[in-house]
Computed example of a mutant assay.
Amino acid sequence: MDYFHGYSVVGLVAVVGVLFVSVAFASGRLLRPVVPTPEKMLTYECGVDPVGGDWAHTQIRYYVYAFLYVIFAVDAIFLFPWATVFDAPGFGATTLVEMFVFIGFLAVGLLYAWKKGVLEWT
């Protein structure tokens, strides 16, 4: 019975969280004034009135740099905890093989990015 007690606490916290968010949204909807004006219906972007068309050119290289950062950040997030438990009894060869598989997947992704010329700073 003690096993399910932990799940009931998590479930109760989840229900209280959902109720709290629901009550907050409902009270906000009931208390806010609703006075739509033409100025309020305009598109708003950082205090600047929209001018021109709706098409904007975005550099894809920023996305690629962010993606490469995420790859290396995820790599670091998995490597540091793995390094702390690697020496513990019962985690030797199995965790070493698993980590080499993980690093292999990351290396394949990095090799693909290198072959595509993404890592060139031109």
Rank of each mutant, 00 (worst) to 15 (best):
I103A: 12
V13S: 10
G11Y: 01
V108T: 03
F20W: 15
Y3V: 10
L106M: 06
A14E: 09
L68K: 00
P33W: 03
T37W: 03
I71D: 03
G52W: 06
F102I: 06
F100Q: 04
V13N: 03
G104N: 12
V21T: 11
E39D: 15
W121F: 08
C46I: 07
W114N: 01
F80I: 15
A66G: 11
I103C: 06
F25H: 10
V21Q: 11
G104F: 14
G90Y: 02
V101T: 12
D49F: 08
T43D: 11
T122V: 08
L68Q: 00
F91S: 01
V108E: 01
D54N: 10
L119E: 01
L68V: 01
F4M: 12
V13D: 07
D49L: 14
Y62C: 08
F86R: 12
A113W: 01
R29V: 04
H5F: 09
G47S: 06
F80S: 11
G90N: 02
F4H: 12
Q59V: 07
V15H: 02
F86C: 03
V9S: 02
R29N: 03
F20I: 11
I60S: 02
V85L: 07
I103P: 00
A73H: 05
A88T: 05
F86D: 02
L42Y: 04
L119K: 01
F86G: 03
G28K: 04
L119S: 01
G117C: 01
Q59F: 05
P38I: 08
R61K: 02
V15Q: 04
Y63N: 06
V51K: 13
L12I: 13
P50M: 04
A73E: 12
A73L: 15
K40Q: 12
A14C: 14
D54F: 06
G53K: 04
I60H: 01
